[in-house]
Design a protein around this nucleic acid. Sequence first.
DNA 1: TATGAATGAGCCTTCATTCAT
DNA 2: TATGAATGAAGGCTCATTCAT
Lengths: 197, 197, 197, 197
Amino acid sequence: MDVTMDDDGTKQQRRGNTRQRIQDVALELFAEQGYDKTSLREIAERLDVTKAALYYHFKTKEEILVSIFQDLTQPIEDLIEWGREQPHTLETKQEIVRRYGQALDDAAPLFRFMQENQATIRELRIGESFKSRMQGLREIIIDPDAPLTDQVRCISALFTLHAGMFVLQDLEVDPEEKRAAVLEVAIDLVTQAHQGG
Amino acid sequence: MDVTMDDDGTKQQRRGNTRQRIQDVALELFAEQGYDKTSLREIAERLDVTKAALYYHFKTKEEILVSIFQDLTQPIEDLIEWGREQPHTLETKQEIVRRYGQALDDAAPLFRFMQENQATIRELRIGESFKSRMQGLREIIIDPDAPLTDQVRCISALFTLHAGMFVLQDLEVDPEEKRAAVLEVAIDLVTQAHQGG
Amino acid sequence: MDVTMDDDGTKQQRRGNTRQRIQDVALELFAEQGYDKTSLREIAERLDVTKAALYYHFKTKEEILVSIFQDLTQPIEDLIEWGREQPHTLETKQEIVRRYGQALDDAAPLFRFMQENQATIRELRIGESFKSRMQGLREIIIDPDAPLTDQVRCISALFTLHAGMFVLQDLEVDPEEKRAAVLEVAIDLVTQAHQGG
Amino acid sequence: MDVTMDDDGTKQQRRGNTRQRIQDVALELFAEQGYDKTSLREIAERLDVTKAALYYHFKTKEEILVSIFQDLTQPIEDLIEWGREQPHTLETKQEIVRRYGQALDDAAPLFRFMQENQATIRELRIGESFKSRMQGLREIIIDPDAPLTDQVRCISALFTLHAGMFVLQDLEVDPEEKRAAVLEVAIDLVTQAHQGG
DNA sequence: TATGAATGAGCCTTCATTCAT
DNA sequence: TATGAATGAAGGCTCATTCAT
């Protein structure tokens, strides 16, 4: 069975999910302290395994991050693919904003991490993936023939969602209300953009 | 004079401006590679001095960053102070956005650095300063009694300016045009916020 | 077995005793040159390992010293405990002196080190332990109601043993004879102290 | 004049006594923290001068210590010289003990420093001086033909004086009383030594 | 009689990584 | 599926010392 009893009675899940546990702890620490400031020693200690054990599951420190990234950003990949196949209508754009907001919410720790560690990420393998994802997002939401201000509005809509997650953390309001407000503003922006200012 | 010729013909300015040169090079490297990834050795080599020389001018690595931060964010400090004394009119808010955009432009490398190294900064001494500056900005631009969406619009305006600097770098348009567009959208947002959606 | 042959024919014991070897070499160097003057590089080189290897076995330089201290001063700890349970007779005191002399002999390099590096030790974690051990020794050998001179005699007895180890090194006599003489004088002192001058 | 008024009204003696002030501060810090742990920066800061200023007055850090040592141990030098010219009577020896005790008292910080930094001193230029001084003291107080125990008693007398200064600091008795007791025990020891146990 | 600026050596420590077991 | 032991590289920092001014 996957569950063993420790001496002190605490249950510990082993067997087969160590890889997952590494990813969980790693993401938690990466988001909390940053990638550079989080050492493998720390991750290993938190899991009560040795550093060497991490190397059984992942080839390098970077690989841990890459694997997390790949697992958690699939929805955005899917969103972009979906977006490419849709007509460039206002409804599509609004739906993209809605879905993107949802995706951010679902993988909040990862995106918080990406947001706060851009300098680090840029030099990592996921840097390019990230950039191209962002580029993809832009393409499905921006009309390249629209006036510049409207293009900016679309970017702004995306950024409003980000801001909603990471900057408005300390705003003392009901999280749900806040989510709704953020979404409304973002949708408003793409709407204005679509309708030409 | 303060200029001497080296063997290889390169000019080297010494005498009293070493401190400034350290700050310049440090900011450049910090912005380029991140704070953690930039070592004092690297800074020193670039200046053709020893690491120890850096320690003559600054007590720690962090102090270098702090000094840069303090020197370059004064305008924003001033802006906040100015904002506090103004009436909360639409014109004031628009002017704040305008001035903030200008300030970001003037110290672009620093703000790019702050944007991309948030995780690092949070644990540094400037973390708090930065947070309180942002808080100050919010206070002078947000009306706490306004509907939540309008508050979000104000934050969004600020973030639009940031996005304009750092995310739209690769947009292939004339920088001046882009600046104008970004500013327009930001001002638009505070205007809508002021007029109640 | 735990012994392997190197290319150059020197034998090297590995496997499980590296920790002990570090302690041995460290104590030797600490005693010879002092704590501050002994660098981890030096210890590592002498053992033909890297500095980092030391850090696998000990968390800090200080920890190396602490571990040596704890391992080697146990007998004195025991002596104090024993002393506390004995009646305050002359025989007891004499026996304490005898045993203390023996303990000093058994861990001579450590005590020589402690003697010669008091300033350094005071600021280290073992400083307090050392002080309280000395205090403990005093308590079991000094009668607090005795005349001051007799109290001094007891301290003096202890110090005579120390002097015997470290100061009389260069006296050109048979070490055994010297040991006996030192012990005799020390016992004499506690005897006089006990009998009231 | 040698006295100037600072802005804040504190008097500062300058001119000609800087050398002396360096020695004073240095000795204080050396005694307090040890030689190695005391940096020239620290000394300079305490005196409110630059490190370079120290180098105007002394060639090296070691020289500062040497100069202090030479200034303060002259009395012991004198004592030894005096001792050599006296007959080896009991009275002489007792007088030597008395004078040595006085000398220790007069330059207590230095001797405390020497006591606690033997490892450091051994490698310094004063190491030899110190050793030969101690050797000199022994020669004038020990009768080389006496039984070993009596020789030990003499050493012990000297060490009792040391112990009196540095180890008995925390004994809660009137310092004068303590001094007297220590001296009595020391004199007792040389007396016993002289009379043959 | 001092300072400002800098150096070279060295120190303790941490890290990602490796590999035999 | 992991561990124990170790490495090589690097990092931030401190120190005694120098020298032109």
